[in-house]
Design a protein around this nucleic acid. Structure first.
Lengths: 127, 127
DNA sequence: ACACTACATGCAAAATTCTACATATAGTAT
DNA sequence: ATACTATATGTAGAATTTTGCATGTAGTGT
């Protein structure tokens, strides 16, 4: 009978950690652990070309660190795995509730414009 | 005035995580977070040649993840940084108190023989 | 059908990391 | 001094990762 702690699988664990251990991917994870974000939003956030961002997302997705959900043309990525969220909490600090989604100036993604647009509409005279 | 959370340094963080994200180094860290261990003990633990082990230890040491203390001929390594210990707790699970140092059969390091030897000495007749 | 938008994929050169092994050093004992 | 033990360092070829870019695809509106 195996007592309690089975030796951790260092090979598999380190393989997943390797995906985390990358400046741009870590930045992506920090963003999408707060709220699901689409590719074009991350593109603006990182200031990197879209194929580059998609490639890093693929690496994270195939490694099982993130999952994606489609909405029309947009694909939203988020950190679904609770274990990965715990890793990020330990590494980057826990995510505080108020910082859910950050609106980026110059980002045309639905989550960024859907907030900005109504403010303009409300100012139209004779509404 | 900066409100609260300064953006984490993703470059530096990922550089340190990269050192962690390696099967043999992760295994080393798991061992020495429980108790300080010398190189020859880790050599037996990993089943890798000594220069290989020393090299991984150097990488971890120069990255600031571990520190070393000399005792005679032996050099004992341990995880001194509390932040790194927290990472390891999150990744490998917290270390339970009873598993401090594991005696390895075939290891001639002081910590492994110092435990085995007295048991024999005590059995000498007319002690 | 056509164009457009958001995103994915494939590929290759450059950079980095990994691993093995030869060799060096530093402390210890005689 | 000499020999021995424990550990450190240097180096090079192999393997992997990183990054940039060209191109492909899948939904959406007209």
């Amino acid at each position: 009978m195996q007592v309690n702690s089975v030796e951790p699988d260092f090979v598999q664990l380190s393989a997943q950690l390797k995906l985390l251990a990358h400046p741009e991917r870590l930045r992506i994870l920090d963003a999408i652990r707060r709220a699901p974000e689409c590719v074009c939003h991350l593109e603006v956030l990182l200031g990197k070309p879209q194929p580059y961002v998609s490639q890093q997302l693929r690496i994270l997705r195939e490694g099982g660190l993130i999952c994606d959900a489609r909405d029309g043309l947009n694909t939203y990525y988020c950190v679904c795995d609770l274990r990965v969220r715990a890793w990020l909490d330990a590494i980057l600090g826990p995510v505080d509730a108020q910082s859910a989604h950050t609106v980026l100036s110059g980002c045309g993604c639905p989550k960024c414009v859907r907030v900005a647009l109504p403010l303009v509409v409300e100012f139209t005279p004779g509404g």
